[in-house]
Nucleic acid binder design. Structure first.
Length: 416
RNA sequence: GUGAGCGUAGUUCAGUUGGUUAGAACAUCAGAUUGUGGCUCUGAGGGUCGGGGGUUCGAAUCCCCUCGCUCACCCCA
């Protein structure tokens, strides 16, 4: 019997891990530079949280959740998205009474039962940031700036930023009625999927890729023309501020997002280096969510961004990730007695933060030299019978080939 | 859930109209005069040809079923 990893999951092997560490570091450093603090929530939550927060008509909740019953009969779900859990934690821990505003970020796995394809996994890593407690338009801008800065620092320059506003709940309800009647009058041109969606999640008809759907929606009434003055002003402020700060963007009425909690600003970052799944990240404002989860009415805005996709795009752009660090000194012992001496020297060096390792297979001298070379060690330290006698080993630089007799206790002084 | 393409050593791939013990490169390991890496040379290990069934004297090759992978639809990060 052969075991395979579950469909849609991945193994990150040692040869690729340096890449992940590097990107994770950029994400954390950049996000903290903007004054965000990390928050960690459980890998699974009560299923009801996502039904309530994300919405039962969404694809995520409707057909993509990993839901199971535990031994106590509770229905639990592996986190399919980051915002609802963070807001649950915000409310549950009374964070609003610590401070009127919180800037939070996360970097963790998300789980969705989808059919895997390029850039789409069943377990994927997302970093996201949320600003809770303020409805100031600059919050929206700040988050966009943060995402942009992370992308830039990963060598990604040529992504597209698309923006839209879907207004406040009531404005959207009114608009949806207008859109519905327009779509109904053109229903014979719509795809089957869009016909179904027309009733369940009308806005989503707008982001259909179907050519015929697009012909219909191109001429559909636009939500931006149906916003109240407050929403309209906020949207104009966001757009103008982005322009003023030199952030390229385009307004696109199709950016409606698939989660129910969004209000007002919505945005997506798209890349051409990603095949069919072209979203690098996306987000928006969710002013009703916290109330929905039982908290006091509190505004919030956030985004999520796929780390696998970020790495894919960075790689395509030839980004130089760091390399795995090689041990500095490789110890070669030519006898059992010499080996014991090595173990002691290595213990002492490691206390001094000098990285070192030695052969664990009892291999030949030549094989050990080869190993040191393959690992890219800067030095080898050789102890044979002569060296045991003199209590001085041979410290050899792999780059120059130079070799100097060095006392057992004086290796650190003779390297670097 | 729907559709298309692809499954041969660890990896990337060859494999002639079905015909002997299924190959190469890279990788791995070992050796090339006594205790010195990279380059080179020599050699070794490693495959139930995704799995099952069928046709045939004979199947990696033909047929059927099945599983897996990949990409697209869908959806999103």
């Amino acid at each position: 019997m052969k075991f395979r990893r579950p469909k849609g999951t991945k193994d990150v092997l040692p040869k690729d891990i340096a890449k992940w560490h590097y990107v994770e570091r950029i994400i954390r450093e950049t996000t903290e530079l903007f004054g965000f603090a990390e928050i960690r929530t459980p890998t699974f939550e009560n299923t009801e949280l996502f039904k309530r927060g994300v919405g039962t008509d969404t694809d995520i909740v409707g057909k993509e959740m990993y839901t199971f019953e535990d031994k106590g009969g509770d229905s639990l779900t592996l986190r399919p998205e980051g915002t609802a859990p963070v807001m649950r934690a915000y409310v549950e821990n009374g964070m609003q009474s610590e401070s009127p505003i919180h800037k939070l970020y996360y970097l963790t796995s998300m789980f969705r039962h989808e059919k895997p394809q390029a850039g789409r996994y069943r377990e994927h890593t997302q970093f996201g940031a949320e600003i809770v407690g303020s409805d100031h338009y600059y919050c929206d801008v700040e988050l966009i700036l943060l995402a942009k800065e992370v992308y830039n620092r990963c060598g990604i320059q040529d992504f597209r930023l698309k923006l839209n506003s879907i207004g406040k709940a009531e404005e959207r309800r009114n608009y949806v009625e207008i859109l519905k009647s327009y779509l109904n009058s053109n229903i014979e041109h719509l795809s089957e999927e869009s016909k179904r969606r027309l009733e369940t999640n009308t806005l989503r008809v707008l982001d259909s890729k179907d050519m015929n759907d697009r012909k219909v929606t191109d001429l559909a009434p636009k939500i931006l023309d149906h916003l109240g003055s407050e929403s309209r002003t906020r949207f104009d402020n966001v757009v103008n501020e982005l322009s003023r700060l030199g952030v390229k963007h385009e307004v696109d009425f199709r950016i409606v997002r698939g989660l129910d909690y969004y209000t007002d600003t919505t945005f997506e970052f798209l890349s051409d280096d990603l095949g069919s799944q072209d979203a690098l990240g996306g987000g928006g404002r969710y002013d009703g969510l916290i109330e929905q989860l039982g908290g006091k009415p509190t505004p919030g805005v956030g985004f999520g961004s796929g780390v696998e996709r970020l790495i894919i795009v960075a790689e395509k752009n030839g980004f130089a990730f760091g390399e795995q660090k090689a041990p500095l000194v490789y110890f070669i012992a030519l006898s059992d007695e010499a080996r014991k001496i090595c173990y002691g020297i290595m213990r002492d060096l490691r206390k001094l933060d000098v990285s070192c390792e030695t052969d664990l297979l009892g291999r030949s001298f030549k094989a050990q030299m080869r190993e040191a070379n393959k690992l890219n060690c800067r030095y080898v330290y050789i102890i044979g019978d002569d060296e045991l006698q003199k209590k001085k080993g041979q410290l050899k630089s792999m780059a120059t080939g130079d070799q100097v007799e060095t006392e057992f206790g004086k290796i650190k002084e003779n390297i670097e």
